[in-house]
């Protein structure tokens, strides 16, 4: 390996047989223990959780659809109606987080309340509120993005890559 020549220091000695046996035994013990722990551990209730995620996620989506229909009937074009719906849903997610209700929904819904855009709002308000005591710059403003930040970073990276690919290959 090229990298290993740059590093001065003791050359890596091959393990003696006894050391190899010890290492093997340690791995074996850890695996055996992991199996014991797994046999005791309660499992997540996959089916119940999935059903709860389905119906609560569905209700949030249906509510958003109702809001979209209302905006559309008020004369907004489909695009603006969708944008206005996003604003309302983000507001609702933020408000319910502030009122201390969204985390209670999340206990039951799991992904059902994480994945909708209301969950994105929750992930912004929860740390912002919690870290208010650490000040308005290092607390609220910087902590706001602990979860939302990665979402935006990867979202932007992917969207720019898609744009570059579309530009150069079409």
């Amino acid at each position: 390996m090229a990298g290993s020549t740059k590093q001065p220091g003791p050359p890596k000695k091959p393990l003696t047989l006894a050391e190899q046996v010890m290492q093997q035994k340690q791995t074996y013990d850890q695996q055996a223990y992991q199996r014991l722990a797994d046999s005791v551990k309660p499992r997540p209730r996959v089916i119940v959780n999935a059903l709860n995620a389905f119906w609560i996620g569905g209700v949030i989506a249906a509510l958003a659809q109702v809001i979209t229909l209302i905006f559309a009937s008020a004369g907004l074009n489909p695009r603006d109606a969708a944008a206005a719906t996003v604003i309302v849903m983000v507001f609702l997610g933020a408000l319910l987080t502030g009122l201390g209700i969204y985390d209670e929904i999340g206990k039951v819904a799991g992904a059902g309340s994480i994945i909708p855009i209301t969950g994105f709002a929750n992930s912004i308000v929860a740390p912002a509120m919690e870290y208010k005591r650490e000040g308005f710059v290092f607390g609220v403003a910087s902590r706001m993005f602990t979860i939302a930040g990665p979402v935006l970073v990867y979202g932007f990276i992917v969207s720019v890559l898609i744009g570059l690919i579309a530009y150069f290959f079409s």
Partner: peptide, 10 residues
């Protein structure tokens, strides 16, 4: 929207 409402609620 998320930043503004997030800030206000916080």
């Amino acid at each position: 929207a998320a930043v503004i409402f997030g800030y206000i609620m916080a």
